[in-house]
Design a protein around this nucleic acid. Sequence first.
RNA 1: GCCAAGGUGGCGGAACGGCUACGCAAUCGCCUGCAGAGCGAUUCCAUUCCGGUUCGAGUCCGGACCUUGGCUCCA
Length: 406
Amino acid sequence: MILLKLFNTLTRQKEEFLPLGEVVGIYTCGPSVYQYAHIGNFRTFIFEDVLVRYLRFKGYKVKRVMNITDIEDKALATARKEGKSLWEMTEYYSRIFFEDMETLNLLPAEVFPKATEHVPEIVDIIKKMMTRGFAYCGKDGSVYYDISKFPDWGKLSHLKLKLGKKKIKRDEWGEESSIISDFALWKSYEKEDGDVFWITELGKGRPGWHIECSAMSSKHLGTRFDIHIGGVDNIFPHHENVIAQNFGAFGENPSKYWLHCRHLMVDGRKMSKSASNYYTPRDLTGMGHKPMAIKYLLLSMNYRRRLNFTFEGLREAEEKIEKICNAIERLENASGRDDAGKLAVKAMERFEKVLDDNLNTGKALEVLEEFTDDCVKQNPDKESSEKIRETFKKMDSVLGLGLFSS
RNA sequence: GCCAAGGUGGCGGAACGGCUACGCAAUCGCCUGCAGAGCGAUUCCAUUCCGGUUCGAGUCCGGACCUUGGCUCCA
């Protein structure tokens, strides 16, 4: 079997994918459920989906965990502002998220752990860090990670920051951004938290932002698993801190491969919630665009490259999908004489080759398009048209474009 | 400022140091009762700039300029 190569942020190199054990463990940073997820977020989720599908296609068993971040400063602030309870709000946006996943034909993860349902595990892992001397209790009652104890800090993001002693409890911009700071693992209760608190051995309070990923990944995948994925904006500080935490608690980096999906741009700028220049899947479907066209567009570029979202691109994606579906439909009544079976074999080989190279979905779509063109030009006989259909099915099982569902 | 990524036709985007993809747009045909879809053909003075290496550079080296991203909200 040809090996898949993946770009590991940790080493900044493409590496051959060699799993640690029988089942490939994948942890993916899921949505923060205080807003609608936008198609930039979904670029990462779609990439993850194709990776999982492709690994299964290659015969691996995969266990994927996708966390649901249902507690953090922004979520609390949003709930307060909208006059809703945190639970009410996160429940709503989680439901929407799952609906959107289905709309985009994304496979569900094996586990969708919620931060609020893992407080005992969170407390436990913080206690481990304290026992091992990586965490301490601050004067304000919060528990902080002592960054000076972790020599490898910064290895993932390659940032050269100065060691400082500024503590960050709230997830806000520090005034001196070039100074590394101890960050909160457990945030002591404050009035604005309202009814959101847990009474634990660490006192009355709530989990910090980064800790859930350490707690939930170690619970559901063990302290060492294969792949951790997220958007590039998670590299720093989130994943850097996750690595620090795991080292503090278990003495090792939790993941062998760290994959990061680059941002989706709109009009040449990053699509983000804070810049409010984003579209959600339902914005676009509401305008009459097909979900699979959105997906097609988001897959049309290798995940490590920036992709600029335009409506022209969306329209093109729509046309390409239609073209492919039309070609498949025609095969149904094929009654020609050409033995086109070779086409299918060749296309499949190329398809795998480009995906093996760091999951280049953009090129995979090109292969799919060219294969479509080739098939249309021929007049396949019954037998080879069956082969061709099978090949389309296989490709679709990896890309999840629902080519056969209409 | 520091750390990255990148600059290719009207647009989007490929390209082991050699044969100048491909798609969109545009034009013309074929097919069609009309439309759509499909097929064929055609058009377009493209590699940010300046040096260097080479028989040969979009590709390698050096230097500018510009764009974007990260630098404690974020997929």
